[in-house]
Write a protein that binds this DNA or RNA. Sequence first.
DNA 1: GTTCTTGCAAAATATTTGCAAGACG
DNA 2: CGTCTTGCAAATATTTTGCAAGAAC
Lengths: 137, 137
Amino acid sequence: MKEAEEILQRKGVKPTPNRIIVLDALIKTEHPTNISELESIIKTIDKSSIFRALNLFLEYGIVHGLEDGSGSPKYEVCKGKECCSIADMHVHFYCEECHSTFCFPSTHIPKVEVPAEFTPRSVNYMIKGICPECKNK
Amino acid sequence: MKEAEEILQRKGVKPTPNRIIVLDALIKTEHPTNISELESIIKTIDKSSIFRALNLFLEYGIVHGLEDGSGSPKYEVCKGKECCSIADMHVHFYCEECHSTFCFPSTHIPKVEVPAEFTPRSVNYMIKGICPECKNK
DNA sequence: GTTCTTGCAAAATATTTGCAAGACG
DNA sequence: CGTCTTGCAAATATTTTGCAAGAAC
């Protein structure tokens, strides 16, 4: 069984062909990806269906979303059980030149205190700057 | 002299009436604000002019931008000389219920290491969850 | 046959630009 | 004048929804 299908099954989302394709594409890109890029990778699936699949994935904790200021949210497949938990989220880097977003999977986000009445559910740590490739141009 | 005008002058941006009004509104809101909200506060200024003012402010380090996943970037007046530096940026909290963004001005963003070839310029630390007001509803 | 899923089209939301008129110096 | 700034309209970009047809069970 494909990895994508297995994940859907395990998370309780019905593994329709479209959903498998979308999730599979997201696994293969290996970097946070926005809807437009997924659309151009997949081609056979309408963007509204991709959109709906992603929202479903978000809801079921299969992917998480990132805002990097590029204008459209990017999505990344959750790794492991605790992926989306605050303790386990990693740092991202957004290149302001090429608009790519990189993961630093081994760099966990340092925890900070929040006032008692606030209830955190997730956290984004986004560093912006210039990536190695754009630097050497 | 108004605070807004003084800031513009000091940062080297010509203090036109519009710019003073926009910056003044941003100072008065005391929370990160998006273009739509500014538009509804100001009313007399076209959104494209607000947009252009904000972009100018960004460029000259008068404000910084935040992405909280609400779909539109928010802007916040820089405080002090080192405001936008990585060392001095503070943590934000986005309420997924009311879509407001709060500042925790005294909570500085903990620094993390990035691979040597990456050149950081700024950093966003965004916690998402439920704010006190929405919690008690 | 009832519910779920999908594609298409269109609405809704936001940003960004072109351009001419007016302000400024 | 010549440059800068502004408002209006329109172009882009992107997300989101309505709906009917078809698939799944």
